[in-house]
Design a protein around this nucleic acid. Structure first.
Lengths: 239, 239
DNA sequence: GCCGATTTGTCCGTATGTATC
DNA sequence: CGATACATACGGACAAATCGG
């Protein structure tokens, strides 16, 4: 699938860094060296570097070189700066995964829904409430709102497997951007019914709006995570 | 300071988007149009676009154009994908800000500290514990570990104002990358002593490692936030 | 369905600037 | 000061996707 040259180079360098072919704080070969190594232009190398920098693998220092700042992190539940379905996340972490659909219904957005989700009042939506299990433990309560217009055939059966698989493979939809807000909220009835929160009285909440390649927001989701199994990784850069 | 052409164009377009000169889901002018408008090369336009895409302002659609997907969000406590000191955040949100230094001491990293912070055992560190107040309310308990070697003069007085100001303006250090992990944790003694958590029994915790322009990790920080005043925004892109 | 115009995506080569050593 | 390394910018070429005729 990824046949862009810069992407091949990016993945190759990423592998070398992850397999510790370059040690922590070691400098990578200079851009000019990589140009001859990969037989490409300097722009292409820089494009690959930009991605590595963005994901926190390396840091460029003008006049000196590009230094490796990758340190392996103990199992991260979610991927750095990516969009990943729960199923994908489970597979990557070698966990057994299952989903139970609690609610599946057609709704029309009212004013309150508009304020919460960003879908305009009157929009036809599909509301799905699911519980996600990892290794048999119920860890996430998930509230999805999908734009019905774009996926009129979406069914309970699909929701039990993977909605993203359906959207990407069956509907050929391309998922591009997701805006996410992380907060901590007091637990509610539903949370305490399905999750084994022990003596926690709150949980990690991720609310997200997702856009497809037409620039249409087709999904609003609120995921409510058990605190013990939640971590969210981010790389920030100054200026 | 930012005199790079692409950065000027980026900021100009960002302003136009934020001031709603382009409406939601409207297409921006094509790259070629912008090339003549800004009298620059297409690469320079594309560089500016890349930054706008990365921050979730716009989305590029091959063959069609670049669509505005910016929706004004109620003032967010923290900035998208940036590194910001608490003081800067307070100023941006028009809040009164103050800090109390609770602890200030020199420590040497032991095995346990190494595992938690990433600083190797034996490293000389400065440990600072502070409470951050916004509009008079204690909202954040902050545990900093700084590399003593790089800032032997760091004092309680500086810690009460802004350490980042000191590092950037006095020491001329450039802060570049920060790796952050967000979790939800049970409150501890210190949290409940200083923060008014009411009936919450947990809080939002951000742990971060920060690197300077030499690729040296010079800071490890754990910030423990009151749930009511915490939100963390992120833009993710697929593949 | 095909064709051409438009628009974004990838890639190249080159030149010049700036920081480090 | 010169060599090396990353940063910015330009111009050109072709590919791939979209859309209208």
């Amino acid at each position: 699938m990824p046949k862009a040259k810069y992407d091949i180079i990016y993945k190759d360098l990423k592998n070398k860094i992850e397999s510790e072919e370059y040690s922590f704080q070691e400098f990578l070969p200079s851009e000019n060296t990589l140009v001859t190594e990969y037989s490409c232009s300097r722009n292409t190398i820089r494009r690959a570097m930009a991605d590595l920098i963005k994901e926190g693998y390396v840091q460029a220092i003008q006049g000196k070189g590009v230094v490796n700042i990758f340190q392996p992190v103990e199992q991260s539940t979610f991927k750095i700066g990516g969009i990943e379905s729960f199923k994908e996340s489970a597979i990557r972490n070698h966990q057994v995964y299952s989903t139970k659909v609690v609610h599946f219904q057609y709704v029309i957005a009212d004013k309150k829904t508009e304020k919460r989700t960003g879908f305009l009042e009157g929009t036809e939506l599909i509301y799905i409430q699911r519980i996600h299990y990892f290794d048999g433990k119920p860890l996430i309560v998930n509230h999805n709102y999908f734009l019905k217009e774009l996926m009129p055939e979406l069914s309970v059966e699909v929701a039990e497997k993977s909605i993203y698989e359906y959207l990407e493979n069956t509907l050929n939809m391309t998922i591009v951007t997701s805006k996410r807000i992380m907060t901590v909220e007091k637990m509610n009835k539903i949370d305490s019914t399905y999750l084994d929160l022990k003596d926690y009285n709150c949980l990690a909440v991720v609310s997200s709006q997702t856009y497809n390649s037409d620039g249409i927001m087709f999904e609003y989701t609120q995921s409510r995570h058990h605190p013990d199994y939640f971590r969210f990784i981010d790389i920030a850069t100054r200026k």
